[in-house]
């Protein structure tokens, strides 16, 4: 396996997790380098999502360790992971349609003011901050006062990514961020992902789209049947090699 010279932000060591008799993860070890886009590829059921859920605090590994920024972590909930600086962009575009863009950006992280337990929303502060977040990302995010229902799929994904990238997150996990999008929108969201990296975020990208993986990522990890079977620097591999690693026609 190819190791990276840069410091790692996430270090997964010998992680295993079984659901009953189904071994979802078996001794998975991999690292995500800080400031890079790391792609995780594999067939359906290979364990990608389960691994991501371990990193983002939804599942707890039964054995092995996950280190974040060099220290072993034991997240009990997604909130723990979020507080540590790990944000997830969900596959199903987890936004509330009938709330505005700024309400979605600040959902469950609302800014309030008031005295003691009596607190009211500071709508002005949130709208202004949302405007800043949106303009920082610079890519095609609509007016923050519009309802999410009115946005296109790409705009929604931009808002989701904006939410994940805000709030000083260190690692942004993206599960199939362009699966529901058309060609042009995919290109724009890809530009957004590259900008995230350029702004200093580390990104973990799950994708079925090999050309996208080759375009965006710095490092690729391949999973098959619950194991991490190979890792490659993207620059040193080809789409064909990745496919053969996924199907198992080539080892290591």
């Amino acid at each position: 396996m190819t190791t990276t010279a840069t410091t790692s932000i996430v270090d997964v060591q010998d992680v295993s997790l079984a659901f009953g008799s189904v071994k979802a993860l078996q001794d998975v070890s991999l690292t995500l380098a800080a400031g890079e886009i790391t792609a995780l590829v594999g067939d359906n059921g290979a364990g990608k999502s389960t691994l991501v859920r371990c990193i983002s605090g939804i599942h707890k590994p039964q054995s092995g360790t996950i280190s974040f920024e060099g220290k072993p972590v034991h997240f009990r909930s997604p909130e723990d992971a979020r507080e540590a600086g790990i944000e997830t962009v969900h596959q199903n575009l987890a936004l509330v349609d009938d709330l505005t863009v700024w309400q979605n950006l600040f959902l469950n992280r609302e800014i309030t003011r008031g005295i003691g337990p009596i607190r009211f929303l500071d709508r002005k502060a949130m709208k202004e901050a949302a405007d800043r977040m949106v303009s920082n990302l610079a890519v095609n995010v609509p007016a923050v006062k519009s309802k999410v229902r009115r946005l296109s799929g790409g705009q929604r994904q931009a808002v989701s990514i904006c939410r994940a990238a805000g709030f000083s997150s260190k690692l942004v996990i993206m599960d199939e961020p362009t699966a529901a999008l058309g060609v042009q929108e995919t290109a724009k969201v890809e530009a957004l992902i590259l900008k995230l990296r350029d702004d200093g975020h580390s990104v973990l990208l799950i994708s079925h789209n090999f050309s996208q993986v080759m375009r965006l990522s710095d490092q690729v990890w391949v999973m098959r049947a619950g194991r991490c079977v190979a890792g490659r620097r993207t620059i040193e591999t080809t789409g064909d090699e990745i496919v053969s690693l996924i199907t198992g026609s080539r080892e290591k």
Binding site: S77, P78, A94, L95, V96, D97, L99, N108, R109
Partner: peptide
């Protein structure tokens, strides 16, 4: 509006 989205943000 969306129970899943609300839960995803930790509500």
């Amino acid at each position: 509006g969306s129970k899943e989205a609300a839960q995803a943000t930790g509500i």
